[in-house]
């Protein structure tokens, strides 16, 4: 039988305020589960970036889009999953090198994916054509 105390699910709408709400809920959940603070910091940033991408890009700033969020702590890993019904998105390759020293040519955004990819151990994007749903699954190893 699944231990529900290790699972947190949230249904939110695509507002920037939702980022603050989810991150706060995740932190409380992790503190209850006595997860190491350094790991918590990593999970908070990756979650922030994922929801921000959904709000700003999948839903193009619309504030009524649905987002389902789930957090699950297993013995060896922490699993985060987001489902949205906005524009489909599946990066072919995440560009790690961002270095550009000319300030006026420096890109102002696009760092979120790099952060998610670097801070988490697994990152999987999936698009379900039937339900027109995007799913992002991120995993952080705990051991």
């Amino acid at each position: 039988m699944e231990d529900k105390s290790n699972i947190l699910t949230l249904d939110i709408t695509s507002k920037t305020e939702s980022v603050t709400h989810v991150v706060q809920s995740l932190e409380n959940f992790c503190l209850d589960l006595k997860i190491d603070q350094k790991v918590i910091d990593t999970l908070l940033i990756a979650t922030d970036e994922a929801i921000t991408n959904i709000v700003l890009h999948a839903y193009d700033g619309r504030n009524d889009g649905k987002i389902h969020v789930s957090f699950q702590k297993d013995e060896k890993e922490f699993i985060i999953q987001f489902t949205d019904f906005g524009k489909s998105f599946k990066p072919l390759k995440i560009k790690k090198k961002t270095r550009l020293y000319k300030v006026d040519r420096l890109r102002i955004g696009g760092y979120g994916l790099v952060l998610m990819d670097t801070l988490m151990d697994e990152l999987k994007f999936k698009y379900d054509k039937t339900n027109k749903a995007n799913t992002l699954r991120m995993i952080k190893y705990l051991q």
Partner: peptide, 19 residues
């Protein structure tokens, strides 16, 4: 407490304008 890529944008945008 923490900084996301949205936070980075504050500094990059300001630096570009100040230049």
């Amino acid at each position: 407490q923490y900084l996301s890529s949205s936070g980075l944008r504050i500094f990059i945008a300001a630096m570009r304008r100040l230049k």
